[in-house]
Computed example of a mutant assay.
Amino acid sequence: MADYKVQSEGDNDDFVYTRSFRKIYNMFRSLKNQKGRFVLITGSPGTGKSANIYTALKILDLNVYDPTLFLDDPDMSSSEVFSEFYRTLRKDLGVKTNEEVYKKVQEYDVVLLADKILDSEFIDQDKVGLSLWSLNKGFDTFPFYFGILMEYFKHKNDLTQVNVVIQTAFVFRFKGVKYDILTDFFIVSQFIVFILNLFFDVIRISYSKEETREIVKKNFKVDDKQIMLYIEEYGCKPRVIFEKLEKELKK
């Protein structure tokens, strides 16, 4: 099966410029001349968070630090993942302490925490990314994310000189289907996002049916009626529809 995940600035040639993309583009454009912004990019699984992020970055030509995190085992503890996360950053940036990490990243327009951290198993099949680890460990991941939050408050002064963009999801799987707490549970999701908006800039990726139809037609030669049937069944989630269409066309 083709891999429809976008993990770098050069991966996406058939991009459709949607309303959600324009919001991301305008936000990213502002990062060239200011610091201290924390931007959370949210969206239901399959809406193309990484495609929107990397396309905007490619157009704007920002100086981006986009680290990769390889975990050896999906059963690693939160403390082990926390240690590996900062060990990776220190090694990658050529520094010795976490304090130096926060100073070093000030040299970039944007620090991007996206697919290379979340889904690094697509880069090295022998490793695991943060998303797969989180799916496997469930609520046992809480100490890791709490630790990251504490680091944010501890180094808040340093971070006023850093822009951070995070591809954000709190995903779990139920009966084989992925759900994101930030987008798929209406009132609960809205409340959580409201709280996040008090501290961060939150941009949600979502599409109209027409935008979804256009995205699918850019990638598959199928008629509008068939596309709309898939939209009715799977929602406005292009990557999910891509995968379903590919399976159908192979039959």
Rank of each mutant, 00 (worst) to 15 (best):
90 R>L: 10
151 E>D: 15
209 K>E: 15
208 S>Y: 07
57 L>Q: 07
115 D>I: 02
33 N>Y: 15
117 I>Q: 00
62 L>W: 02
30 S>D: 14
137 K>I: 08
32 K>P: 09
233 E>C: 03
118 L>I: 06
150 M>V: 13
179 Y>L: 03
43 G>S: 08
119 D>V: 12
87 R>F: 14
112 L>M: 02
157 N>W: 06
180 D>C: 04
29 R>M: 15
203 I>S: 00
96 K>V: 10
62 L>S: 04
93 L>N: 05
18 T>K: 02
32 K>T: 06
58 K>N: 14
44 S>L: 06
67 P>N: 05
90 R>C: 14
158 D>C: 07
250 K>R: 11
39 V>S: 04
45 P>L: 09
55 T>R: 14
218 K>H: 12
35 K>C: 08
30 S>H: 11
11 D>F: 04
29 R>Q: 15
101 V>E: 00
117 I>F: 04
225 K>H: 11
173 R>H: 04
13 D>C: 07
31 L>K: 04
192 I>C: 01
195 I>V: 13
63 N>R: 11
39 V>R: 01
193 V>G: 05
127 K>E: 04
143 P>Y: 09
120 S>A: 09
109 D>R: 03
42 T>C: 14
210 E>Q: 08
83 S>Y: 14
222 V>L: 06
194 F>N: 14
183 T>F: 05
40 L>H: 04
191 F>Y: 13
67 P>W: 04
32 K>S: 12
212 T>I: 08
240 V>C: 07
58 K>I: 06
166 I>Q: 07
168 T>D: 01
87 R>H: 15
